Amino acid sequence: ATNIVSKVKWYNSTKNFGFIEQDNGGKDVFVHKSAVDAAGLHSLEEGQDVIFDLEEKQGKAYAVNLRIK
């Protein structure tokens, strides 16, 4: 899926990962520091509106092509 609009559930800049809620009630989506860095960001804030693409690797959903709404 591409261009999903949602909100950051939480992000831990010390552990370099977090999760984004899915508005459709699906499972929370993992977001890694590499996606945050690629977006030119230093961190994410809880409740922040984001747009991302969903990529599945080894049966897990990852946020990629992250951008701020």
Rank of each mutant, 00 (worst) to 15 (best):
Q58D: 15
L44Y: 00
V8Y: 00
N65A: 04
G40H: 08
G47H: 07
H32L: 04
E56D: 08
E45S: 13
D23W: 15
Q58G: 14
S34F: 11
T2Q: 12
S43D: 11
A1H: 13
I51M: 12
G40R: 07
I68L: 12
D28K: 04
V36Q: 00
L66I: 13
E56F: 15
E56S: 11
F19E: 01
Y11S: 00
A39M: 06
Q22I: 11
S6A: 15
V29H: 08
K27E: 09
L41S: 05
G40S: 06
H42D: 13
K33P: 02
D37H: 14
V31P: 02
G59N: 08
F52N: 00
R67N: 05
K60C: 10
E21S: 14
V8K: 00
A35G: 03
E45F: 15
H32F: 05
V50P: 00
Q22E: 07
F19Y: 06
E56R: 12
V36T: 02
K27M: 10
N12M: 07
I51W: 08
F52L: 03
K33C: 08
D49F: 15
K60F: 11
L44F: 06
A1P: 10
K33W: 10
S43L: 11
S13F: 10
N3L: 06
V36D: 00
K69G: 12
Q58E: 14
K7C: 06
H42G: 11
G25N: 11
A35K: 04
L44W: 02
T14D: 11
F30L: 04
N12L: 07
N24L: 10
K57D: 09
I20R: 00
F30R: 02
K7I: 07
K57Q: 10
L44K: 00
Q22C: 14
D28W: 06
Q22W: 15
Y62G: 05
A38G: 07
L54P: 00
D49G: 11
E45A: 12
F30W: 04
K15M: 14
N12P: 02
G59D: 08
V50E: 01
E21Y: 15
K15N: 06
F19V: 04
S34W: 10
T14H: 13
N65V: 02
N16F: 09
A38K: 12
L66C: 03
H32G: 07
D49P: 13
D49R: 13
E21D: 08
Q22S: 15
S34I: 09
A38M: 10
V36M: 08
D53H: 04
K9P: 02
E55P: 00
S6R: 06
E55N: 08
K27W: 08
L54C: 07
F30T: 01
Q22D: 12
W10Y: 07
N24Y: 11
V29G: 00
F17Y: 15
N12S: 14
G25D: 09
D53S: 04
N65E: 03
K57N: 11
G26C: 09
K27V: 10
L66D: 02
S43H: 13
D49W: 15
E21V: 14
L54M: 10
I4F: 07
G40A: 06
V50R: 02
A63G: 05
N16C: 12
K33S: 09
E55C: 14
V31S: 00
N24Q: 11
Y62W: 12
V29R: 03
E21N: 11
S43Y: 13
N12C: 12
Y62R: 10
V31K: 00
A1I: 13
L41D: 03
R67T: 05
K15T: 07
F52K: 00
N12A: 07
V29F: 10
E56L: 14
A61Y: 15
F19N: 01
E45G: 09
G47I: 02
S43C: 14
L41Q: 06
W10L: 03
Y11E: 01
V5W: 11
G26S: 10
H32V: 03
W10I: 03
V36H: 00
Q22V: 13
E55W: 13
Q58K: 12
E45L: 13
G47R: 06
R67C: 06
G40F: 06
K57W: 12
V5P: 09
L44N: 00
A63M: 02
D49T: 15
A39Y: 03
S13N: 11
D49E: 15
G26I: 09
I68Q: 07
V64R: 06
N24P: 10
G25S: 09
D28F: 04
F52W: 09
R67S: 05
I4S: 06
S43M: 12
H42R: 13
Y62C: 08
K9N: 02
A38Y: 07
K33N: 04
I68K: 06
K33V: 08
H42W: 11
V5G: 08
K60A: 08
K69Y: 13
V8H: 00
L41N: 03
L66G: 00
G25Q: 09
N65I: 03
K15R: 12
E46I: 13
E56Q: 12
R67H: 07
K57F: 13
S43E: 11
S13P: 14
L54E: 03
F19P: 02
L44E: 00
G47A: 06
F19M: 05
V50T: 02
K60P: 04
N3R: 08
V50M: 05
V8F: 00
L41H: 07
H42V: 13
G47T: 03
K33L: 05
F30K: 01
D49K: 12
L66K: 00
K69E: 11
G59S: 05
G40I: 04
S43G: 13
Q22N: 14
N3C: 11
A1V: 12
S34L: 11
V8W: 00
Q22F: 15
T14C: 14
K15S: 07
G47Q: 06
D23P: 15
L44M: 05
S13Y: 11
D28Y: 05
E45D: 10
A63L: 04
F17H: 06
N65Q: 03
V8E: 00
T14Y: 12
G18Y: 03
G40L: 06
G18E: 00
K60D: 05
A38E: 09
G40V: 04
E46T: 15
A61H: 13
D53I: 04
S34T: 12
F19R: 02
Q22H: 14
D37G: 08
S13A: 13
L54F: 07
S6D: 02
F30D: 01
K60I: 08
L44C: 02
V29M: 04
V64L: 04
I51V: 11
G40D: 06
V5F: 10
A35H: 06
A39P: 02
K27G: 10
L54Q: 04
G18Q: 00
K9L: 07
T14V: 13
G47C: 08
A39D: 01
D53P: 00
K7D: 01
I20Y: 01
N65W: 01
A35V: 09
N12F: 07
T2I: 13
A1G: 12
L66M: 03
F52G: 01
G26Q: 12
I20D: 01
E46V: 14
F19Q: 02
G26P: 07
R67V: 08
G40T: 04
V64F: 05
S34G: 08
I68G: 06
V36S: 01
G26A: 11
A63V: 06
G47E: 04
T2L: 13
F17T: 00
E21P: 04
A38Q: 10
I68C: 08
K57L: 09
K9C: 04
N16E: 09
F52C: 01
Y11L: 01
